[in-house]
Amino acid sequence: MNQNTEPLLSIRDLKVHFFMDEGVVKAVDGISLDVHSGQVFGIVGESGCGKSVTMKAVLRIVEPPGRIVSGEMLLRQTGRDGKTELVDLVKLDPRGTEMRHVRGGQIALIPQEPMAAFSPVHTIGNQIIEAIRLHREVDAREARKIALQQFRDVGIPAPEQRLDQYSWQMSGGLRQRAMIAMALSCNPLILIADEPTTAVDVTTQAQVLRLLRRLQQERNSAIIFITHDLGVIAQMADYVTVMYLGLVMEQGPVDQIFHAPKHPYTRALLESIPSVDTPPRVDLPTISGSIPHPFNRPAGCPFHPRCSEFMPGTCDQQTPALTPVGEKQLVSCFMYHNREVMA
């Protein structure tokens, strides 16, 4: 982890809202994060907290009635002359050449539903070759060679034959590997893996996670790793962002998030899962209530109706800002604001 270098991707106060007939869904409501190269950047949060929508915004593929309402997403690009420049992805035309170059070329996605990611009527090989030719100036033969090498890299057995198969002819584990091969075929700076192992079994999951780790280390790229599984995030991520209802609750190095969590939500979440130390068959600590419906977002701190530290008059009136606590952690919670002010 090289925190002192400039971030590769810097998201500032991003808001993505869906304008529905019934009302506005504030799916992402002002999140900020910095992704550095050589880092596995983990995003963890429960269903509907805005993980996928954030990544769709980065790739500029948010579907209507959704729209980026405000914020910036600065991508550090290196031009041919070796100079770096910052491009604000929010300002690009989602259908323009620049954005097409970013999408798949510089930032690649392993989507949440691998089945939907491949077309059933074209062979996997042809789809990867097409993607390579879109982003690199190579002929079809060269592209096939690259695709084959990617298949070998991700450990697909008999890669020559597999390349000519259709996605539905592959097992879940192989399809996942093919998906990773496709995403990596253009040497992206950032790989976004959106719940890459929810659809596969534990032993396959272990293989896929190991593979991603190895590839990331070999290529020194960055991975944005999204999951709702705290076990997976603990094993994979260097740096963790905890989201709740479209906002960042806490950010920090993985060890601090798990061993010195600050935000009441992070703490409660970690306590609620059975761990190696939890005595069996006794009640687990719980978080009261459930995640509110997107149309009923609580005012103030979004966690306040469920928070054990709730301070009436403060938490339900104002939204806490993401504030540094200690050296490396950032927390959105008034418990820490007050301390900062008093100190």
Binding site: S171, G231, A234, Q235, D255
Partner: peptide, 25 residues
């Protein structure tokens, strides 16, 4: 034993997942 080794434990200080199960079910 392979299932247990594959289980991702929610503690970054305990490294798990170092299981080599070749092939598929």
């Amino acid at each position: 034993a392979a299932l247990l080794a594959a289980l991702p434990v929610a503690d970054p200080r305990i490294k798990t997942g170092n299981v080599e199960l070749p092939g598929e079910v």
